[in-house]
Amino acid sequence: MLTFLNRALRWSTGLMAAMALFTIMLLTLVDVTGRKFFNHSVPGGLEVTEILMVIVIFGALPLVSWRGEHVVFDSLDAFVPSWLHRTQQRVVHLFCAVVFAWMARLMVMRADRFSEYGDITVHLQLPMAPVAWVMAAFLLITALVHLVFVFVRPPEPAFHGAAQTGDAA
């Protein structure tokens, strides 16, 4: 089940974050080139960047939680007996699930506020409420990831996976 969830996250929220980041990069390049050589920048480029940033940050968050990449003090680990370790892990994951779910709730509040006043972006006049909804959805998925780990032991090797990707050349 864990492998399936891993793939599911990678090819959904992970892929969205990756594409958003790549788009921000290209958008900046096109914007700068356009302004320098063709005297016109991308209309509303700043707003699009902001919206894409939301997808990069919050879209990759479930994967960060999935791989246990949040910054954690592990200096006391040596003093925690092994029988207690799993229990500690469960409690911490439950706590994280609650906090991220609560953050999702806060973003729903924000979305409601935006729709109440009808807030839009300056240039493209896109409604703001859906942006907050997207944040809420990603935060909720993150909370669910932590909730899974309350019941299922997290995949140990994937924890430090960043080291495996090394550089190619």
């Binding site: 974050a17 990756a18 594409m19 990069v56 940050i57 919050f58 990759a60 994967l63 990449e69």
Partner: peptide, 11 residues
């Protein structure tokens, strides 16, 4: 690379 950079960003 993109996913890894996004993960670092999210963290």
């Amino acid at each position: 690379v993109l996913i890894e950079s996004s993960r670092t960003t999210a963290m």
